[in-house]
Amino acid sequence: MSEKEIRPAVRTALEMGPILAFFAGYILLRDRAFTIGGTEYSGFIVMTAVFIPLIALSTVALWRLTGRLSAMQVMTLVLVTVFGGLTIWLNDERFFKMKPTIIYVMFGAILGVGLWRDRSYLSLVLGETLPLDAAGWRKLEFRMMLFFFGLAVANEAIWRSMSTDAWVQFKTFGLPIAMLAFFMAQAGLMRRHSTDPAETEDAAD
């Protein structure tokens, strides 16, 4: 089934809304503690409990509006639920902080396996919206593999050595900015290897 078109603003709101809500709630509750069922929970744990249903609802809304979900969206929801649930159950924020590391290692590994098998998994997901030749896909996937592994290392370094405030800011703003900067840096590669006639003419000029 082909993906239905929705407004970019709606997609951005659904994808970033839960993250921004987590950030805002954490800022409001970070210095408070809540006793529930005889157990004391920090504001971080409480907002983790709020974040799980928020991202579930946003993912379902994206599915209903577009008719499909990417593998990354499904895997993110599963890992948020699993690691967020462990965070709440064990009352230990480390599990939620490790979640981005697991996600980026998994996607880096998937791209690495594709490169090793000489198969372009990324083109299966983005091929309709990003027309590239085979060499372009291979170069982009290699760079994305390194990028994902780099993000995993950065996440581990930050949550293990810095404060929770620093990690929340990195998760909310640093990761999206890094993603945007990465794809902007690939503009030249995309022009050079585009199979779109208009892009090919521009690259040749």
Rank of each mutant, 00 (worst) to 15 (best):
M1D: 13
S2G: 10
E3Y: 15
K4L: 09
E5Q: 15
I6Q: 01
I6T: 01
P8G: 08
V10F: 14
A13S: 11
L14D: 00
E15F: 13
M16E: 12
G17A: 01
G17H: 05
P18V: 04
A21H: 09
G25M: 13
Y26M: 00
Y26F: 11
D31L: 06
R32C: 07
R32H: 12
F34L: 09
T35M: 13
I36P: 01
S42P: 05
S42A: 07
G43N: 00
F44M: 14
V50W: 08
V50Q: 04
F51Y: 12
I52H: 07
L54I: 12
A56H: 13
S58C: 09
W63N: 09
T66C: 12
A71L: 14
V74S: 15
V82Y: 07
F83H: 08
G84Q: 10
G85T: 02
N91C: 03
N91D: 11
D92M: 07
F96Y: 10
F96L: 07
F96T: 02
K97M: 15
M98K: 13
M98P: 09
K99H: 07
P100L: 00
T101F: 12
T101Q: 07
I102E: 10
V105Q: 01
F107Y: 11
G108H: 03
G108R: 01
G108D: 07
L111T: 06
L111D: 05
G112H: 01
G112S: 03
V113Y: 11
R117I: 10
S120F: 08
L122G: 11
L122M: 09
L126V: 06
L130F: 00
P131G: 11
D133L: 07
D133Q: 04
A134P: 01
G136A: 03
W137E: 06
K139N: 10
E141Q: 12
E141N: 00
E141S: 02
F142N: 10
M144S: 14
M145W: 04
M145Y: 04
L146A: 12
F147P: 06
G150N: 07
N155S: 15
N155R: 08
W159F: 14
M162H: 14
M162L: 15
S163N: 03
T164A: 00
D165V: 08
D165F: 15
A166V: 12
W167D: 05
W167H: 14
V168S: 00
L175R: 03
P176M: 10
M179A: 09
M179Q: 11
A181I: 02
F182H: 06
A185V: 02
Q186E: 12
G188E: 10
G188L: 14
M190F: 04
R191W: 07
D196I: 02
T200F: 10
E201V: 15
D202R: 13
D205A: 13
